[in-house]
């Protein structure tokens, strides 16, 4: 199953980035094989709408779930419209997070965890 984890670095050994819209990397990972693709996030320095664009970028990758620390209201709306399972409050290593998702350790977020502009640099 293909999911996406926000990451501070470009590989599975990196830490989960607590920000969604302005995370450093998106790691798209297959939870069965642990094959992954690291995508640098172009929205880190966006003036506004980073969460929306990141939500759209993640949706374009056809992932089933997003694992991250926090998600704002606009990003949540975009992810929800794309039918992506949103998991917040995730920390630790990217690989461990992916494995825990596969094992069913997480519960889906029912709404945004932070307000707009929280992840501004």
């Amino acid at each position: 199953m293909k999911i996406c984890v926000t990451s501070r670095g470009p590989n599975l050994e990196s830490e989960v980035d607590p920000r969604f819209g302005r995370c450093r990397y998106f790691i798209v990972v297959d939870t069965d094989t642990l094959d992954f693709e690291a995508i640098e996030n172009p929205n880190v320095e966006a003036a506004g709408g980073a969460g929306i664009q990141s939500g759209q970028a993640v949706a374009a990758k056809d992932v089933k779930a997003i694992l991250t620390g926090n998600v704002g209201p606009n990003a949540f709306r975009a992810l929800q419209a794309a039918g992506i399972d949103v998991i917040t409050d995730v920390s630790g290593g990217v690989k461990e997070a992916a494995e825990r998702y596969r094992n069913g350790d997480f519960k889906s977020a029912q709404g945004p965890s932070v307000s707009s502009k929280t992840g501004m640099p």
Binding site: A47, G48, N74, A78, A81, A82
Partner: peptide
């Protein structure tokens, strides 16, 4: 539309378009 919006106010998904009016 998403491409030309300088304020990231539009998200185009596979079969839906979202408009974020406040942006």
């Amino acid at each position: 539309c998403q491409e030309v919006c300088s304020f990231n106010a539009i998200a185009v998904l596979k079969d839906d378009v979202l408009v974020f009016k406040e942006l």
